[in-house]
Amino acid sequence: MSASSALQDLLRFLTQEAKLPLSLALSKIPLLQKASLSTPEQIAKAKPADLLPIIEDEKQRKQLLAAAKRVVKKQAAGEDGQSAESPSKKRKRGEGSLFEVKAERTPEELEASLTLPSGSAAEELLEGTVLFTNRAPLVLAMTVTLLKYTMPEQPLSSRLSLAQAYVSLTSRARAVSLGIEKDSAEAEGWGEGLAEVEIMGKRIRVLRRWGYEVEKVVAAAETLDADADVKQESGREDVKQEGGSDETAEEKPALWGLDLEALKKSKTETINVLKAQSATTANMPIHTPQSARAYLLKSFDSPPSTTPGKKPTAAAKAAEKEQNLGMLLQTIELLFQSWLIAITPQELEKRIWGWYVQVRPDVEHGVAGWGGKNELKLGKILALRRAADG
C-alpha cells in the first residue's frame, strides 16, 4: 500500500469509524504516525496511556479505541460473509469515488493532460482581437496565470484547482450580495480549522496532496509550459496549519482548492449517498483541475457574426475557442511579464483585480447582468503593460 493510500485510509477511519471531527482528525494524524499508530490494528493494541498524549479528551480516546477494536473484529470475521478487504483494495476494484479512479494515472500523465493552449500570435494580431465571454472565466484565466509566479512550486493541476476555488469564492460572495444566493459556505464557517492560503486577498481553504512528488512533477511540467522562461523569486504565501504554524519553504506541499459549497451540501443532505464522502481526503470535494480547464476551453468565443452563413461544426467551434484561449493567455503573460521586470510577484498580485475591472466585459448592473456576456478586447489588456521607460 502506498503512503498516500495508507494516509487516506487512516483519515477515513478516524472520521467515519471513530467519528472524530475532520479538523481534529487532520491535526492528530502526524502524532499517530509518529507513535506508530497508523492503522486500526495498531490502535486496537494500544493502551489508553499510549493515546493520552495524542487524544486529550477521554471520550474521544474511548471512541477511537472502540472503533479500532470494532474494525479489527469485522476484518477478522469478514463483513456480510465476505473476506475482509481494505479500503485501498476496494478503490483498486473501482468502488471508490470517480476522482480516486482518475487519480490512478501518474502525476506526470495528469499534468500533461491538463496543458493549456499557448498563443504565439504577433502583437498586431492580439491588439485587434476581440473575444466574447462573461466575467468569471476571465478572472480564472488571470488567476491561473498569476499563480505560476506567486506559487511557482505548485503544479498546473493545483494552480487550476486553486484558481477555480478563488473564482468560486468571489462569485458566491457577489451572488449573495445581489440576493441570488443565500449565505456562502465560507461565511457559515464550513472548512473552519482546515489549512488555507491567501490569493489576491481571499483566504482559500485547501487540502494537501499527500504523496504527490511536487518537485518531480513541476520539473516535468516546466517542459510543457511555453512561457516558463521568465524566472522570478518565489512569492508563495505559506500554508497556514491549524494552530497558526507555517509550512516550511522546503516542504512546499501540492494543494487542492476545497469546494466548500459541495462540502456543505454533502454534509446537509442526510439521504444523499455522498453524505460520508466529505470525511476523507480522497473524497473531500475539491475544485478539480479538469473542470477548471474545461471551463476555460469553452468560455472564450468569437463575437457573434452578423453575416448570415453556414454555422461551423462543433469541432471547428471548439478549435476556435481553444485558439482564442491561447491568445488570451498569451496576452495576460505579456502584461504580467512587462511588470515583473520591475516589481515582485507579491506586488503584481495586488494589481490584478484593478486590471480586471478595467478590461472585463461590460454587462448590465445588478442581477440583470449576472452571467452576462460581452466583448473582451485583448488590446485593452495590452494597454496596461508597463512602459519601457516606466
Rank of each mutant, 00 (worst) to 15 (best):
S4Y: 03
S4F: 00
S5Q: 11
A6V: 01
L10A: 07
L11W: 06
L20V: 02
P21S: 04
P21I: 06
A25R: 05
K28I: 15
L32M: 07
A35R: 04
L37G: 00
S38Y: 01
Q42W: 03
Q42S: 10
A44H: 02
A44L: 07
L51P: 03
L52H: 04
P53A: 00
I54G: 00
R70G: 06
K73S: 12
G78D: 03
G81H: 08
E95K: 05
L98F: 09
L98R: 01
L110Q: 08
E111Q: 10
E111T: 10
L116M: 03
S118K: 01
G119F: 04
E123K: 01
E123C: 04
L125T: 15
L126P: 08
G128A: 13
T129M: 08
T133Q: 12
M142W: 11
V144G: 05
T145A: 10
L147F: 08
M151N: 14
P155S: 05
L160Q: 07
L162F: 00
A163W: 00
L169G: 04
L169E: 07
G179E: 07
K182A: 09
D183N: 11
D183A: 12
A185K: 06
G191F: 09
K202M: 04
R209W: 02
E215P: 04
V218S: 01
A220Y: 02
A220C: 06
A220F: 02
L224M: 05
D225I: 06
R236E: 13
E237M: 14
S245V: 15
D246Y: 13
A249W: 11
E251K: 15
K252D: 11
W256P: 02
W256R: 03
L260H: 11
T268V: 13
E269K: 15
I271H: 09
K275H: 14
T281L: 15
N283K: 11
S291D: 09
A292T: 13
Y295M: 14
L296G: 06
L297M: 08
S299W: 03
S302L: 02
P303S: 06
T313A: 07
A315D: 12
N324F: 00
G326P: 10
Q330S: 02
I332Q: 01
I332P: 09
E333A: 08
F336Y: 14
W339F: 13
W339A: 12
L340R: 05
E347S: 09
Y356F: 13
Q358L: 15
V359L: 12
V359Q: 12
V359T: 06
V363I: 07
G369K: 02
W370T: 04
G372E: 14
E375Q: 02
K380D: 14
K380V: 13
I381S: 12
L384E: 06
R385G: 03
R385K: 11
